[in-house]
Nucleic acid binder design. Structure first.
Length: 536
RNA sequence: GCCCCCGUAGCUUAAUGGAUAAAGCAGCGCUCUUCUAAGGCGCUGAUGAGGGUUCGAUUCCUUCCGGGGGCACCA
């Protein structure tokens, strides 16, 4: 990855010349005139070493320059000429311009790596547990579940691509208060809470008058007949369906409470057992065992946390909805109390999803039975579009899903735009199928000189960078945004450069380029779980 | 009252503290004797308000104004 190389050689130059250790950040400039990569590091160290930033940039440029194609005495470990030009400009940026030679070589590199292109060894096979959805088995999945569901699934894909061992896990709250309330609802007594149509169906299947038993049976049916099929429909395959009840059966809850007591982190107050979560930054202490003897969900959540770590996971990722925000501090507190490191626990809280239809917001609530389920949405707009719309929004922002727009736009929306690029490539390949070009000669790749060709290659080599960035900050929406950029670069290339020409070497080179583009488009869409049709 | 998220073009949103704030949709034009016009090109149009930090702020701090969520021996 050339970005990594630039970072490395710049850091080396700074260390050697200025004796400063600093992490250099390499960015892609907004304007083409500023090159393909740039760094502001000269301006940053200017303060520390009290020198003119532009002067520093000039100096660093001089240090880095031997890596350019034009250089004479190349260092021994030097692979190939990365740059045509490196420049230092006011107020102190260093801009890097990739060489054509380097770009052209990348095409054969991608063709060689195929679906492995973009794969990294960043994760070093560390085990990551990603828990998402984990909706209570008290009703069908909602749109909010879709957000965490798709993002969690795709993050798992990306982390796997980055070299982690990822496990998708669904935590089933199959015991406790919610299940009892479900039981009451199915029985239809005065404590009824859930009111959807599915409750009436359950009433036919589950008989009895003990709310707990009825609830447990109903929960089992909901899990098997509603939730599991929904996740299948979403294109998600969980590695583990983890039962909360099993934690009680194996006494893991009791054991972890003992552990906390032994650490002197619990106390009794008004008949309840409290955990001193304020010792670890929470704003109030939390109850583990209620005065009536029942254990809270928090208690089993701590046991579950410990269970995950004991299964050898280095990192735990949770996807929660904004309505669970209040829970973050206490779970982090529990993790610290058990002696785990802060970096091991990542809780991603996504803001709520709101659905608009006919210009009006549709309120979703399991309790009133008035909501659109995720299944309905997927039936309505299709899985590809549903996934894309949920993935493209940053988790921090509220997601407004306009049903009419998603349907109306189904002819003109970004998903089709991306898939269309792939379909166009396939169409060309069908026409030149007989030519059997799979590995163009590097001699011929040198013919890729058109700005649209070079620009397309520059997009292609962003792919591993996107994987690296997401693996570091979990911002999944980078992937769909990238897919749009990549498709746009292809469509521009398509306008400017005819692939099927009488010029055989050029034909070979351009076929290589579109084959590489096809690979990267497919890799990107595969990671998002969006289909890649060869024809549209 | 306290805590968190969000206020960017008519709408939905981009932009690891960087260079002329980027797209899509909607609107107005142009573009198929050429590999799929579900494409391409152009025009119109925006950082809620005020302070501060600095070479430089959509981004960080602060006050205010909007919108959403959370503050239980509920999940």
């Amino acid at each position: 990855m050339v970005r990594k190389e630039i970072k490395k050689i710049t850091e080396k130059a700074i260390k050697k010349f200025y004796k400063e250790k600093i992490e250099v950040k390499i960015e892609r400039p907004s304007e083409m005139v500023f090159g393909d990569y740039a760094t502001n590091v000269a301006m940053i160290i200017a303060k520390q070493i009290k020198k003119n930033p532009l002067e520093i940039a000039e100096n660093l440029k001089f240090q880095i320059q031997p890596y350019g194609e034009f250089a004479q005495g190349r260092p021994a470990n030097f692979k190939s000429g990365y740059f045509d030009k490196i420049e230092a400009v006011k107020p102190g940026f260093i801009n890097f311009f990739l060489s054509k030679k380097y770009l052209q070589e990348q095409v054969s590199e991608i063709l060689k790596q195929k679906e492995k292109f973009g794969g990294l060894i960043l994760g070093k096979n560390k085990k990551i547990n990603i828990e998402f959805i984990s909706a209570n088995p008290t009703g069908p999945l909602t749109l909010g579940n879709g957000r965490g569901g798709f993002c969690g699934d795709v993050l798992a894909n990306v982390l796997a691509k980055a070299g982690y061992k990822t496990f998708r896990e669904y935590y089933i709250n199959d015991v406790g208060e919610q299940v009892k309330k479900l039981g009451h609802s199915v029985i239809g007594d005065s404590e009824t809470i859930y009111k959807g149509d599915y409750i009436f169906d359950l009433r036919k299947k589950v008989k009895g008058d003990n709310p707990e038993k009825v609830g447990e049976q109903a929960a089992k049916i909901i899990l098997e007949e509603m939730i599991k099929p929904s996740t299948k429909k979403m294109g998600i395959k969980f590695d583990v369906w983890f039962s909360e009840k099993s934690l009680y059966q194996k006494k893991e809850v009791d054991k972890v409470l003992e552990q906390l007591k032994n650490k002197n982190l619990c106390y009794k107050k008004q008949g309840a057992l409290w955990f001193k979560s304020t010792n670890f930054g929470d704003d109030k202490d939390r109850v583990l065992i209620k005065a009536n003897g029942e254990k809270t969900y928090f208690a089993s959540d701590i046991a579950y946390l410990k269970n995950k770590i004991s299964r050898g996971f280095d990192v735990l990722i949770y996807f929660w909805g904004a309505d669970h925000y209040g829970y973050v501090a206490r779970l982090k507190a529990a993790a610290q109390a058990l002696g785990y490191k802060k970096e091991q626990l990542h809780i991603i809280v996504s803001q709520l999803v709101r659905l608009f239809a006919d210009g009006k917001e549709m309120r979703m609530s399991k309790r009133t039975g008035n909501y659109t389920t995720l299944d309905e949405l997927i039936d309505e707009v299709g899985l590809d579009i549903a996934r894309f719309f949920f993935l493209i929004r940053n988790n921090d922002t509220h997601l407004n899903f306009d049903l009419d727009l998603a349907k109306e736009q189904s002819e003109k929306n970004p998903v089709f735009y991306i898939q269309y690029a792939h379909a166009r490539i396939c169409a060309i390949l069908r026409k030149c199928g007989k030519l059997e070009i799979r590995n163009p000669k590097s001699e011929n790749l040198k013919l890729l000189n058109h700005p649209s060709e070079l620009n397309l290659i520059k997009q292609l080599i962003r792919f591993p960078e996107i994987i690296e960035d997401i693996a570091n900050d979990y911002q999944v929406q980078r992937l769909p945004l990238y897919a749009v950029d990549l498709a746009a670069s292809f469509h521009q290339f398509y306008r400017d450069c005819q692939v099927l020409t009488g010029d055989r070497p050029l034909l070979e080179a351009r076929t290589g380029l579109i084959l590489a583009t096809k690979i990267v488009l497919k890799n990107t869409l595969d990671l998002m779980g969006i289909s890649v049709p060869p024809k549209m």
